[in-house]
Amino acid sequence: MAERPHHRPMMPGDQLFAELESGADPLLLQEAADRAAALLVRGARASDDAGVAERVVHLAETEGLEVLAELWSGSPADSLAGALWRLYLLRDWVHRAPQEVAAEYEAGRGAAPFARVVAGVADPPGAEELKAMVDQVLRGIAGSDFADVLYRAAAFAHVVAVGRAILTQRSDAPHQEVPRMLTLAEQLEAAARLEMRGELA
């Protein structure tokens, strides 16, 4: 029996989405999405390459958020791929609207002290501090327990949801994004619990 040639395992940033093709069979795309998610989370943590964490943080910029959306946005929230999509969506929003995020976080942090502590945002929570925090959270995909990453992101989203609700009450203006942010927080926390039990796949 001939020996199979040895291939170096693909790591994040090394053509991670090479299998993604527009118009491909949805089932094959989902399989590729799941494989890419597992590689990103499990492979990054196993790597001794110091640059992996930075590639993980900036994945949406190097690959394009629309590529991540095509790959992962249809994945269930209680899956590895679905959790990753929500993390990158959260990071993208923080970097696109840091002043808005800072105002909402500031409004909510007094009313959600436990979540504020878990999120681990510098005090005072300005725009740059929030961008640094969300990048640090994503770096954790490669360098720390993935459940901790999800719990921190969930806590952050929870504080923002509380802040949005408070600002909405103050302005008497309906804000349809409050339930969505709260749902995001709940989904990330549920994914963290699954990860703790070794059931997030």
Rank of each mutant, 00 (worst) to 15 (best):
P5R: 00
P9Q: 01
P12W: 09
P12V: 05
G13D: 07
Q15F: 09
L16N: 00
E19V: 00
G23P: 05
A32Q: 02
A33I: 07
D34N: 15
D34E: 15
A37W: 01
A38C: 07
A38P: 01
L40W: 04
A46I: 08
A46D: 15
D48G: 10
D48P: 04
D49I: 08
A53G: 04
A53K: 00
R55G: 00
R55W: 07
V56S: 01
V57D: 06
L65N: 12
L68R: 02
L71P: 00
L71M: 15
W72G: 00
S73G: 13
G74W: 04
S75H: 03
P76R: 02
P76M: 06
A77L: 05
S79I: 12
L80Q: 03
A81Y: 01
A81D: 03
G82Y: 00
L84G: 00
L87I: 07
L89F: 13
R91V: 02
R91I: 06
D92C: 09
D92M: 08
W93I: 13
A97C: 14
A97E: 15
Q99V: 12
Q99C: 06
E100D: 13
A102S: 15
Y105N: 01
E106G: 08
G110K: 10
R116S: 14
V117G: 09
D123I: 12
D123W: 10
E128N: 02
M133W: 04
M133Y: 10
M133N: 08
G140V: 06
I141S: 01
G143D: 13
S144T: 08
L150S: 07
Y151S: 15
A155T: 10
A155R: 13
F156M: 08
F156I: 04
H158S: 10
V159W: 07
V160F: 06
A161W: 12
A165C: 08
I166P: 03
S171C: 10
A173N: 06
A173D: 03
P174H: 03
E177I: 14
V178P: 01
P179I: 11
R180D: 07
M181A: 06
L184H: 13
A185G: 13
Q187P: 01
Q187R: 12
L188H: 03
E189S: 11
A190G: 11
A191F: 02
G198K: 00
G198V: 01
L200F: 01
